[in-house]
C-alpha cells in the first residue's frame, strides 16, 4: 500500500514495529513504533504518558515527511 500511494507523488511515512518487513516490501520513510499490539503508545505507562509517547512518535513521523531521502530510510531515535 505504501508504495502504491507514494507512486502518486504523495510522501508516506510508514509507522510500524517490524522494520525489516517495511524494508523488504520497500517503504521509503520508516519510523519504528513500540510493539505490534500497540504501535503508537504504551498502555502500560498509563494514559497520559502513553499519549505523550504517541505524540512524540507522530512528530517524528511528520519530521520524516519533511526530510529529503535518497532511498529507504529508517528514522531511529
Amino acid at each position: 500500500m505504501v508504495k502504491e500511494i507514494e507512486r502518486y507523488g504523495l510522501p508516506v511515512v510508514h509507522m510500524c514495529t517490524i522494520v525489516p518487513i517495511s524494508l523488504t516490501i520497500g517503504a521509503n520513510r520508516i519510523v519504528p513504533t513500540v510493539a505490534i499490539p500497540y504501535p503508537l503508545g504504551d498502555p502500560h505507562l498509563g494514559e497520559e504518558k502513553s499519549k505523550n509517547l504517541r505524540r512524540h512518535l507522530v512528530e517524528k513521523g511528520l519530521d520524516a515527511l519533511q526530510t529529503e531521502v535518497d532511498g529507504q530510510t529508517v528514522f531511529e531515535e
Binding site: 510493539a35 505490534i36 499490539p37
Partner: peptide, 9 residues
Amino acid sequence: NENVFLADK
C-alpha cells in the same frame, strides 16, 4: 520465540 517487539526479535 516470535515476539511483538523488534528488540525481542
